[in-house]
């Protein structure tokens, strides 16, 4: 069973809560995905506003664990303060740490990410860093106290799917005992199945589900693909071969000429 910072998790799908057509459809997608972990965020509340409260009540009613993020932060200082405010609101030490370094690609600023991860880990946070597939950065994040890594497989919201399978394969090989969650860039269930077949432990999705014509059905489709990919990895797959290999035995074949 997958364990994240000591918490056993049955579902290997983590689901974002943003960009759904309505709160009701968000609720349906969460239920049908059978996810146990959803990502949430913090934003400025207007005076007299109750939107944050209504959203929080919805999430609380769904009996899922929340993983607050630091989306939109561009410096380690911003991310650390946002994480502390999230801990105040959501009463969890878990934090999905995002420090954005490029506005076009939403690529993480890995230097600030490592800096913030160290500060937060020392302050008792359990950090889920949104990072690249760079192995050295991954090492630094582990040194900083992270016990989970969340590499992108393509830019956030791009729906490209894994653009560098070799890098992901290499990451899995280098960190056999670290939970690896692909975060960002997945567009289709087949993309999710592919990274799970590589041995990744889980997938974090948002736009691919929320932007579907039927988000709840897509959430379930992803859940099945993720389970299938994981089961296939565990079952041990054949490696590709250059030559054909007959699947029907040739021993005992009749000779007619």
């Amino acid at each position: 069973m997958l364990t994240l910072y000591g918490t056993p998790v049955t579902s290997r799908l983590l689901l974002g809560t943003s960009r759904y057509p309505s709160p009701s459809i968000l609720g349906d997608a969460i239920r049908r995905s059978k996810t146990e972990i959803v990502t949430v965020s913090l934003r400025r509340e207007t005076a007299g506003g109750k939107t944050g409260g209504a959203f929080f009540e919805l999430i609380r009613s769904l009996d899922v664990r929340v993983l607050p993020n630091t989306a939109g932060c561009h410096t380690a200082k911003e991310a650390v303060l946002t994480a502390k405010m999230a801990r105040e609101v959501f009463a969890t030490n878990w934090i999905k740490l995002e420090v954005i370094g490029n506005q076009d690609t939403l690529q993480p600023d890995v230097f600030a990410l490592v800096e913030a991860a160290k500060i937060l880990s020392e302050d008792g946070f359990e950090v889920f860093p949104y990072t690249t597939d760079d192995l050295v950065v991954a090492e630094r994040l582990l040194d900083a106290g992270c016990k989970v890594l969340m590499p992108w497989c393509a830019p956030i919201g791009s729906a490209m799917g894994p653009v560098n399978l070799q890098a992901l394969r290499s990451m899995r090989g280098h960190f056999p005992d670290i939970p690896l969650i692909v975060d960002a860039g997945i567009g289709r269930p087949s993309h999710a199945a592919t990274v799970m077949e590589l041995g990744f432990d889980a997938v974090l999705l948002n736009t691919a589900v929320a932007g579907a014509s039927d988000p709840a059905a897509m959430a379930e489709a992803f859940a099945k693909a993720i389970d299938a990919g994981h089961m296939a990895y565990e079952a041990g797959m054949l490696e590709p071969r250059d030559m054909a290999v007959p699947s029907t035995p040739v021993i005992g074949k009749a000779v007619f000429a």
Binding site: G16, S41, R43, T51, F55, A71, F90, T207
Partner: peptide
Amino acid sequence: REERPGFTLSDRDRIEILSPMQGG
């Protein structure tokens, strides 16, 4: 939260008030 009743504000303080919202 528990520090707010005893927190004295000063001229030109910058205050941020955040609440939960959807996130990815």
